[in-house]
């Protein structure tokens, strides 16, 4: 764990409060899609800083993109999408990784205590030593980010370089970016910078430019500036991500389950106390050698049938 327990704001599968008491500013990684040149320096920096084994020995799949998708050993990826808009070709280059949601669906879906934590600065981290490999976080995540390793049976994703940030450094991808497409700072600073950049883009004819900081997941700690902010889908980002499924799954069903289990046990106990056990009186045993007697039940014997 990159941070002290005093900096932990939320812990997965924990019904008691998290230990965090530190008052630290929230951080944000700002991704200005309009100034990404697709150099992939961030991908390399991520692989290098996190010592992740490369797995680029794949067949060509018709794209400049390094790999088709995120993987357990590939935590951030520039997605190269060719789309048509207003009769023009647009080639979007969108750095994709964990969004570090304010209300993380992965953390709420996780059944293993302490396997996912959220720090006071907003970073959501997987703690592999507590991970049981169930993959519930994969379904809880509205951005399809966590990846299960078939060899270790644990899930992995971008840590927002929580180890570097805890030492006062910027994430490796931000450090490597040559165009200032990536910035890192406090949430207030970065949201102000994002708004400023959106105004610049609007002045340059991108009248749909917008900040992508979806409220359905409590805001994110990876925030985008999108030149075509009215269609986040063209950047591979969900329009309105939410954790409403996790509410049903971890709210309604859990409530129903507890009513059935505890209600059933309490109901059975009360029924037993009121109506007691039903015993069938044993038949009167027959003395050996005596004439067989009728086999009517004899009341009051009290034996168990």
């Amino acid at each position: 764990m990159a941070f002290e327990p005093t900096a932990i704001k939320a812990v997965s599968a924990s019904v008691t409060p998290a230990p965090g008491v530190r008052n630290v500013p929230e951080v944000v990684k700002l991704i200005d899609v309009s100034s990404c040149i697709g150099c992939k320096a961030c991908e390399v920096a991520c692989q290098e800083w996190n010592d992740l084994p490369a797995n680029v020995n794949r067949p060509f799949f018709g794209s400049y993109q390094t790999v088709p998708d995120l993987d357990w050993n590939f935590w951030q990826l520039i997605k190269f999408n060719e789309i048509q808009r207003d009769g023009r070709l647009i080639w979007t280059l969108t750095k994709y990784q964990c969004m570090h949601c304010g209300d993380p669906g992965c953390l709420r879906a996780c059944p293993a205590p302490g396997a996912i934590v959220q720090y006071a600065n907003g970073i959501v981290d997987f703690v592999q030593e507590n991970c049981i490999g169930c993959g519930f976080c994969i379904t809880g995540c509205p951005f399809d980010v966590p990846r299960l390793s078939p060899t270790t049976g644990k899930v992995y994703k971008c840590t927002l370089c929580s180890d570097r940030v805890s030492a006062g450094l910027e994430p490796a991808c931000v450090k490597a970016c040559p165009t200032k497409c990536l910035s890192f700072g406090t949430r207030d600073q970065m949201l102000a910078q994002a708004s400023y950049r959106v105004e610049q883009l609007k002045a340059n004819g991108y009248d749909k430019a917008a900040v992508y900081n979806p409220p359905g997941v409590g805001g994110t700690h990876a925030v985008y500036v999108l030149p075509y902010g009215d269609s986040p889908e063209i950047y591979g980002l969900p329009r309105d991500p939410s954790v409403s499924f996790v509410d049903v799954w971890k709210g309604g069903l859990r409530w129903l389950g507890n009513v059935v289990i505890f209600g059933g046990i309490i109901g059975a106990i009360l029924h037993y106390l009121r109506f007691g056990p039903r015993r069938v009186p044993a038949e009167e045993p027959v003395e050996a050698g005596a004439a067989p007697r009728p086999t009517e039940p004899v009341p009051g014997d009290g034996g168990n049938g």
């Binding site: 069903l253 129903l256 389950g257 059935v260 289990i261 059933g264 046990i265 059975a268 029924h271 037993y272 109506f275 056990p277 039903r278 015993r279 069938v280 168990n304 049938g305």
Partner: peptide, 23 residues
């Protein structure tokens, strides 16, 4: 949902077989 239903049915089954209907 199916697990909840199956467990609820099992609670009834265990109660009947072990406690209520002796024998």
């Amino acid at each position: 949902l199916m697990a909840i239903i199956a467990i609820g049915a099992l609670i009834v089954h265990i109660y009947m077989g072990l406690f209520y209907i002796r024998g």
